[in-house]
Amino acid sequence: MENRLETSLSGIRLNNPVIPASGTFGFGREMTAWYDIDCLGAISIKGTTPEPRYGNPQPRIAECGNYGMLNAVGLQNPGVKVVVDNEIPQLSQVFHQPIIANISGFSIDDYVFAARQMDQTDGVAIIEVNISCPNVHNGGMAFGTQPQAAAQVTQAVKAVTHKPIYIKLSPNVTDITQIARACQDAGADGLCLINTILGMRIDIARRQPVLANRYGGYSGPGIFPVAVRMVNQVARSCQLPIIGCGGVSRAEDVIEMMMAGATAVEIGAQNLVNPLACKQIIEDLPKVMDRLHIHNIKDIIACVNE
């Protein structure tokens, strides 16, 4: 039977375009308590670095009213060995859709090391290279804010891998299309955007930053228009497939993000406040598509650019 929600990333078929974003879904296994995660298009698992990391000091979460939240988790993860040996095999037992391995690092060598491990791991379909974490110093976002550095990471990772490489871009730049084109020219297979927007909250009673890290990444419904704009800008200046991400909280947002130019869509902060968000969005999509006279979801990708 025809699947109206089907989409594909670099030849990898997804039953639907809905993907929980890295950092908002753990390593997937934790979410099986809420629903059968096999309904998801794919899962982007928690960002992984070569060595285990605790991350930043507490507090590392702050609220932004109705609009979203700040996080300064700082890439807490058990290290690539544990992820490859334990987390991915355990996830593979309960999840039979593509797994997107999100990797991060503090040097080109870090990215190369983590990418090589993920490339050799069964179950990993796509490697998502995070060059946009705003919460770590001397790394992460530093690679995502200069076209040349972004190209270097892309090229180095491509040289040691066979699986599709998607570069996760930072919105904290003057012109995201420059970074996107640099990644494309360096051989990236796709792009994922946007990561969180650097933000700050102040406890006005204590006259202190809320976050111990002072600044953190802003996510949630408030960043959705920024994400749609950037996805559209990149779609108009690049040929690569795009995973759209940023503030998506309902089926209509998925449609909008795809119309802007995304081939698939990641859901982030919404998972934290509604653990059933992705499942509900997938269930709502056909109804919203009917209302909007969309037959196949693939038909709307980048339709605003036509």
């Binding site: 934790e30 308590a33 991350g55 507490q58 590392r60 406040v273 653990p275």
Partner: peptide, 27 residues
């Protein structure tokens, strides 16, 4: 007590250091 993102173990927002490594206050 901790500032939490999700409350069910997926965001790592509330993690503390313990004798046995990082542990989530919520989980």
């Amino acid at each position: 007590e901790a500032r939490m993102g999700c409350g069910f173990g997926v965001c790592m927002g509330c993690t503390i250091q313990t004798q046995y490594g990082p542990q989530r206050v919520c989980k």
